[in-house]
Nucleic acid binder design. Sequence first.
DNA 1: TGGCCTTGTCATCAGGCGTTGACAAGCGTC
DNA 2: GACGCTTGTCAACGCCTGATGACAAGGCCA
Lengths: 197, 197
Amino acid sequence: MVLCDVPRPRNANATRQAILEAARERFCAESYDDVGMRDVARDVGVDAALISRYFGSKEDLFLSVLDSCKNGRDLMEGDRADFGQRLATEVVYGEAARCEADPTGEKMRGLLILLRSIGSTKAMDVVQRTANNRFFDPLTQWIGGEDAAVRARLASGLIMGMAIGRELSDGFSALTEEQRGRLRDRMAKALQGLIDG
Amino acid sequence: MVLCDVPRPRNANATRQAILEAARERFCAESYDDVGMRDVARDVGVDAALISRYFGSKEDLFLSVLDSCKNGRDLMEGDRADFGQRLATEVVYGEAARCEADPTGEKMRGLLILLRSIGSTKAMDVVQRTANNRFFDPLTQWIGGEDAAVRARLASGLIMGMAIGRELSDGFSALTEEQRGRLRDRMAKALQGLIDG
DNA sequence: TGGCCTTGTCATCAGGCGTTGACAAGCGTC
DNA sequence: GACGCTTGTCAACGCCTGATGACAAGGCCA
């Protein structure tokens, strides 16, 4: 069956970009292993072979996607006293966990992609390296002062764990709206306590 | 090449048990997708077809492994005032994260298996259900009182996130022994604060 | 209009997966 | 000793994956 849609204009840059965005969405919603080249290609309306030509291997595509995401530093920009509140809001309410295109979720996307593919042995090296370079190290530096490394581990642990808990519980759907608010507030307070020491 | 080891004595129960233990170890070290029936079979020294006969499908094997693990309630037995300290020790020092056979790590194993296979769409249903039935719900009930559900989400989030951070950083190998101690203490305090309210 | 580089498609490959049904070997029982 | 049930092996199936090289078609330039 041939779909009667307009053919994609021949534009390598645009196509490459479209592939990158489709892949980003896929890697945000599924693990490295579960994302297929053919799936991404279908999303774009292109043959899977083209991805190999433009990006090389699947791992290279994954790397390109991670590079195209916002850096972990973006999570820290803003008033330091609001860090807990900002991050808690992002995790509890952010549509980030659903990978929509809202500017709010944008900042979490890189981290969420990493969390999705945790556990995949094929992606482990890349995930470990990126998590450290892009998140742990900047966070440690940003926290600064005594025991910065230790506090960074704790803060990132809470953030990652809550992001995962969100996935495990379908976006905290079992909680009432009021409970979600208290979850946000408690998490904000705990997180702020961890980075303030 | 035929290995000249003694043939496995014909004992269905023992073989079934050996398969279950090998699978438990595998699922503890790799994700659902990365664990192959042939790998498990090789560990036991048996043909992969036998696993299908004894356990049915791969998903059934995964379920059997989860059933064979200690329940989340075991994490809560003991003095409530020590909960944070116990769990933090388990996460920071426990060889649990390496899935060895020490009695200490035993209690975390079920949770670690779930965390390993988070992100696998094939195992998602089982993981979600088990995480809720075995961990979140008992923890919520155990915490009790006001906002128990909210506090359980936070506590389990911190535990899960730190367990994942442990994997991501090769068992906190970048930290000195002294820093690990402080990490344990800070985590214990934070965790205790979350469940006490 | 004819050549030619670029862009995209197609068929195909080798390899891995979980699963299946037919077959071999052990072992107790009559 | 022969039967028959249990336990385990083997070869194969169908399916899916990422990757490759040959080929078709668009579009610019002379």
